[in-house]
Design a protein around this nucleic acid. Structure first.
Length: 605
RNA sequence: GGGGGUGUAGCUCAAUUGGUUAGAGCGCUGCCCUGUCACGGCAGAGGUUACGGGUUCGAGCCCCGCCACUCCCGCCA
């Protein structure tokens, strides 16, 4: 071994021992005579002392020339630091190593950015951090993220093993199934014109594994989707993929609650209370206007449909007459919203097809004593209507009331977006604070199985076509598909969708109804795309279901970062490129020829 | 595909809103300094203001285009 201890190991008890350490030059403090070098490795750092009175001149001179991040190995004697020079900021601060020997293992060139100052390094442009990712990853914050990710992966594996699950790997060279996300394609050299696709998820393989009798499957599976990226979306990402046989929804809930309890305990030493709250899709929309509510703050949606049914304010009464609803939220403390902020919210409403956004600013009146409702619409309201608003929204001075009048889903979603926007504004103003250690876990259940696509005039699966309907709703499939609830569940924490899954259809006739009658996929196409699955299901398919958790998002939440790039060792940019390796990149004419491919796009300069 | 933001020294940022020779901190180079730990002090080098056009007597700043990074919408069964 090139070292006897790591850089976070030496304590006063080691005094007198001769040790060898190796690592990176974290910082150098040359006082002209004595020279200090902080040596850093993965575990921490240790101060080493070079004393010219005690060292050959060549060794001391070599030490004075060392650059930050050069890799060195030193040997010397551990000693307690002289009284008054201890450093309480680091765990090894009571001791230092008096260097006798120095070996420069690798001399570092001047750095493209500093990594020894955490605050400065965190502000460095991400473009440069990605280009020199190996330097970025040396920063303790990034090392911590990698370490936490590893711990959670291992905790997940051991929990799943304890629960009787088998870890099974599934192919990444898969069949193209052009439903859902756009796929990455891999040309097949052996038969020109045919392609593999990288899987969007191991969905079909894991269901086949249930037919195989595996009963309990899991995998930390790499998934690939060729869609545009976001802070929480990468073209390749990792899922904790799970599938079980002979179970109901309740079994999945308790399994995942146990897993997350274990993960939070392992990663943060936090005890997560279980079971988690459960919300129906309807309730989530009704109260928070979104199917992944952040319940760490209030500002819930309040319904005023009955109060305004006969209103002389035609915008509201008209929406209700057309079968819609009137809902409102109270953004407490936001009466001082700027014109720009109101404008932003109005644009949000309009993007959902609303004509505008009705609001009331509740401010101190001109006389300074009474409270005045400043709003273009309040003149249309009766006293009874105003009274209802005051009571149900608990209106007081400083409030901003925002309305949506539209079809139920649309009205909810508009206010759901605006609620989150208001929360951001209030957070920025310091009027809303959320405990960073608070985690509001909840299940959202009873999603509608199907949605209706007006443009294509057909139904589509709101989750995926293998999701089982709630048993008692099966008769409705042929009479009133809209009312059919799916056995689908999402796990949500703090407004982030951590994962989702469903109990699957295991009866071929139900599956056939979904494919052919509702999704209107022609039988021959069904056979082409899913034939092997339907075939497999003919030979004894157990009832089964599963779930997939976004592992990168999970780690990001645990690390307290909003970008999953911070928890992936080598992430890609928003355009899907790798700045370190400069990929994707062109290939040789020969490679293309081997694949029988021709590039038709104009060459870029 | 659409919208917003950013791009000035190796890094992080300034540049009095179109006006003389584009500055600072850190880093880098050299010198000084024997108890520092973001060591300190002195001196120095370092710029095609992302790139390409345009307007102007004059552009880092205004206009057009383009590239990269980033955030959002669409998209992500």
């Amino acid at each position: 071994m090139k070292r006897t201890q790591h850089c976070n190991e030496l304590r006063p008890a080691h005094a007198g021992q001769t040790v060898t350490l190796a690592g990176w030059v974290h910082s150098r403090r040359d006082l002209g005579g004595v020279l200090f070098i902080d040596l850093r490795d993965r575990e921490g750092r240790t101060q080493t002392v070079f004393d010219p009175a005690d060292l050959p001149k060549e060794v001391f001179d070599a030490a004075t020339k060392l650059h930050s991040e050069s890799v060195i190995q030193i040997s010397g004697k551990v000693r307690a630091r002289p009284t008054g020079t201890e450093n309480s900021k680091i765990p090894t601060g009571q001791v230092e190593v008096l260097v006798k020997e120095l070996a420069v293992l690798n001399e570092a060139a001047p750095l493209p950015f500093q990594i020894d100052d955490p605050e400065a390094a965190a502000r460095v442009n991400e473009e440069i951090r990605l280009q020199y990712r190996y330097l970025d990853l040396r920063r303790p914050e990034m090392t911590r993220n990698l370490r936490l990710r590893s711990k959670v992966a291992i905790a997940t594996r051991s929990y799943m093993d304890e629960q009787g699950f088998l870890e099974v790997e599934t192919p990444t060279l898969f069949k193209s199934t052009p439903e859902g996300a756009r796929e990455f394609l891999v040309p097949n050299r052996r038969e020109p014109g045919t392609f593999y696709a990288l899987p969007q998820s191991p969905q079909q393989f894991k269901q086949i594994l249930m037919v195989s009798g595996v009963e309990r499957y899991f995998q930390l599976a790499r998934c690939y989707r060729d869609e545009d990226l976001r802070a929480d979306r990468q073209p390749e990402f990792t899922q904790v993929d799970i599938e079980m046989s002979f179970i109901d929804r309740e079994d999945i809930y308790s399994l995942i609650e146990g897993l997350l309890k274990r993960v939070w305990k392992t990663a943060l030493n936090v005890d997560v209370p279980t079971p988690f709250k459960r919300l129906s899709f309807d309730e989530a929309l009704n109260r928070w206007g979104i199917d992944k509510p952040d319940t760490r703050f209030g500002m819930e949606l309040v319904d005023f449909t009955e109060e305004f049914r006969a209103s002389s304010f035609k915008v509201f009464a008209g929406a209700i007459a057309a079968g819609g609803v009137v809902k409102a939220i109270n953004a407490r403390g936001l009466a001082g919203a700027t014109q720009g902020q109101i404008e932003t919210m109005t644009e949000t409403a309009k993007s959902f097809g609303a004509k505008g956004l009705a609001y009331i600013k509740v401010e101190k009146g001109a006389d300074g004593a009474t409270v005045e409702w400043k709003s273009p619409i309040v003149k249309f309201f009766t006293e009874a209507e105003k009274q209802a608003l005051t009571t149900k929204l608990e209106i007081q001075e400083g409030d901003l009331i925002l309305f949506a009048a539209d079809q139920w889903l649309n009205a909810c979603e508009i206010l759901g977006k605006i609620r989150l926007y208001c929360a951001d504004v209030l957070k920025a103003q310091g009027k809303l604070t959320i405990d960073p250690n608070r985690f509001d876990f909840l299940w959202v259940v009873e999603f509608p199985l199907l949605g209706f696509d007006r443009e294509q005039n057909r139904w589509y699966s709101s989750h995926h076509p293998f999701t089982a309907p709630v048993a008692e709703d099966i008769p409705l499939l042929k009479t009133d598909p809209k009312k059919v609830r799916g056995q689908h569940y999402d796990i949500v924490v703090n407004g982030v969708e951590l994962g989702g899954g469903s109990i699957r259809i295991h009866q071929p006739d139900v599956q056939k109804t979904i494919f052919e009658e509702l999704l209107q996929i022609p039988p021959d196409e069904t056979k082409l795309r899913f034939g092997y699955m339907l075939e497999a299901f003919k030979y004894g398919a157990p009832p089964h279901g599963g779930i997939a958790l976004g592992f990168d998002r999970l780690i990001a939440i645990l690390c307290g970062t909003s970008s999953i790039r911070d928890v992936i060792a080598f992430p890609k940019t928003a355009k899907g490129t790798c700045l370190m390796t400069d990929s994707p990149s062109p290939v040789s004419a020969r490679q293309l020829r081997d694949l029988y491919l021709e590039v038709k796009a104009a060459k870029k300069e």
